[in-house]
Write a protein that binds this DNA or RNA. Structure first.
Lengths: 175, 175
DNA sequence: TATTAACATGTAATTAATTACATGTTTTTG
DNA sequence: CAAAAACATGTAATTAATTACATGTTAATA
């Protein structure tokens, strides 16, 4: 997909919180942000170079061990401005590329022998996802304090939980 | 995105219904399928060539005017098998790339001056989408007959409507 | 009948994203 | 202390997708 380089803004958003290495950024997509966006380190490292060339970020080096030197990236004033600009722009809702929905579209008959198995598999996958999200909510937002401090993250998690819950409800209906 | 070539299976699914030209396929993404998947003609024509080379489809030419010759594509036995195979495989749920959610994640404070405008804009966009979907449902499924004949399409539309409805509900909650 | 819109089919250039290749350091654990 | 896991940083090859370029036909309409 040749998209609107949203990854760049995610990186700016993360660096806006605090200075991070390419590895730190990569890790972020394994946890928090990974819940709703994906990125590989092989995409992140080259993009960091490009963003630095574009003067949205800079980097400084840190001696992290006897031999290891870490590159830590910092957002620039221009980067902060670009990030704020992006926040203000209208958002596009990329139609979610849901493979199950796609398949379902092509199954015209209510009596297709494929349907029960497909629906069950999907129910299980979605239920697992829902459990995982609920666990995340427990782990990351144990008290009101966290909800206040990271209200965006909280809203996003709540949204994901609602989405999965509603998806499961719909799966029950078409059964 | 270097994905799992789902477009190929959409094309197979559409050709499995009936023979179509590249233009017909392109049009399908402006209406029905466009509700949940996108593709440009510049992606479709080269893919048709590749799929023909892979013997998933063939084509025949039709004299459509004094000068115009249309290329109509047909699914092969191998194509039908590949399509059925795909239907049976487990489905992956690509985390929907929703830009609004992404932005929200980075807004930590409930009192951010950006929030009200962002939420309103999103509410309006989603409400419009919902209206459009409801109209589609009316237009394409006026009676029980259509629901029986195209149950897959019906389910997918119902799902989209539920999704937008729930999304709007959630937007009200975070307001 | 001239113009415009829709039909119809491609290619080229660029950007985005995945998978695989490649290498080295540091910390943990058995 | 040896091995494994996690940390850390890149590049290369390939695939997917968008935007722009390019050309011609047919039907509708003014």
């Amino acid at each position: 997909m040749a998209q609107k380089n949203r990854l760049q803004f995610i990186i700016l958003g993360l660096l806006n919180i605090e200075s991070k290495t390419g590895y730190d950024l990569t890790k972020a997509f394994d946890s928090d942000i990974g819940e709703f966006w994906t990125a590989n380190h092989s995409q992140i490292y080259p993009l960091l170079k490009k963003m630095e060339k574009d003067q949205l970020i800079t980097h400084h080096e840190e001696q992290a061990g006897p031999k290891l030197v870490k590159k830590s990236y910092d957002i620039t004033t221009a980067g902060k401005a670009a990030f704020q600009e992006w926040l203000k722009e209208p958002s596009e809702a990329d139609n979610s590329h849901d493979e199950f929905i796609l398949k379902l579209y092509f199954i015209d008959s209510k009596n297709s022998p494929l349907l029960p198995e497909m629906i069950n598999e999907q129910k299980q996958a979605r239920a697992e996802k829902l459990n995982h999200l609920k666990q995340q909510l427990k782990d990351k937002f144990p008290t009101e304090k966290e909800k206040q401090q990271q209200n965006g993250h909280y809203n996003v998690l709540k949204h994901a939980i609602q989405r999965e819950t509603d998806y499961l409800k719909w799966l029950d209906e078409i059964n």
